Amino acid sequence: MRKARAVLVSAVMALGVSLTIGATPAHATAKLVGVFKDSSECQRIGTLGVTQGWWEDYSCKWEDRYRYYFLYA
């Protein structure tokens, strides 16, 4: 089950990256840095990235068609 989830998340991330390149002006300067099943986990990693200095700002966006939260920073 873990292998299947890892493959699914990788596929969703790759598809998400390919769809976001030039697709939405809102994320024109942001890049996809993670995909999460739970909003709380997306928020936690986004906040961690800000406190660690990995990025200055982030947003977690629910994509209903994939049923995952995408973390943009």
Rank of each mutant, 00 (worst) to 15 (best):
L15I: 01
L8P: 00
S40W: 05
E63N: 09
A6T: 07
T24A: 10
A30H: 13
T47Y: 08
R5H: 04
Q52A: 12
C60G: 02
T24N: 13
A14T: 12
K3M: 09
Y72K: 03
G16N: 03
T51K: 14
K61Y: 04
G22F: 06
Y69R: 05
Y69C: 08
K3D: 07
I45G: 00
A26N: 10
A11K: 11
A26E: 14
Q52H: 12
T29D: 14
G16C: 12
Y72N: 13
W62P: 01
V35H: 05
Y68I: 03
T24I: 14
K61T: 12
S40V: 15
A73Y: 12
S59G: 07
S40A: 14
D64M: 04
F70I: 03
V17C: 02
R44P: 04
V35E: 03
Y69N: 08
S39A: 10
F70Q: 06
R44L: 09
C42V: 07
R2V: 09
Y72D: 14
T51W: 08
G34R: 09
Q43S: 11
S10Q: 11
Y72V: 09
Y69S: 00
T29C: 09
R5W: 06
K31T: 14
S40Y: 02
Y72M: 15
E63H: 13
R2D: 11
Y68V: 13
G49R: 05
K37S: 08
F70C: 05
Y58V: 04
L15G: 10
A73P: 15
E41A: 12
A11W: 04
A14I: 08
G22R: 06
R2T: 06
S39G: 00
R2Q: 03
S18Q: 14
I45V: 15
V33Y: 03
D64Q: 11
E56I: 01
Y69K: 02
M13Q: 08
S39H: 11
G46A: 04
G49V: 09
F36V: 02
T24Y: 14
V9G: 00
A26W: 14
R2I: 12
D38G: 01
Q52V: 08
A6K: 11
C60E: 01
L32H: 03
Y68L: 05
E63V: 15
G49M: 09
K61P: 00
L8T: 06
G46N: 10
R44Y: 10
W54C: 00
T20P: 01
K37D: 09
L32M: 01
L71S: 07
F36Q: 01
P25C: 05
A11Y: 07
I21W: 09
K31W: 10
V50T: 15
Y68M: 13
T29Y: 12
T47R: 13
S18M: 13
R44S: 14
D64H: 02
Q43H: 10
R5E: 09
A28E: 13
Y69P: 03
G53Q: 02
W62G: 00
R65T: 04
K61L: 05
W62A: 00
V12W: 01
T24D: 12
E41Q: 08
D57I: 06
R67P: 03
W62V: 01
A6F: 01
V12R: 05
V33W: 07
I45R: 11
E56Q: 12
Y69H: 10
A6V: 10
E41K: 12
Q43F: 11
A4S: 07
L15Y: 06
S18E: 10
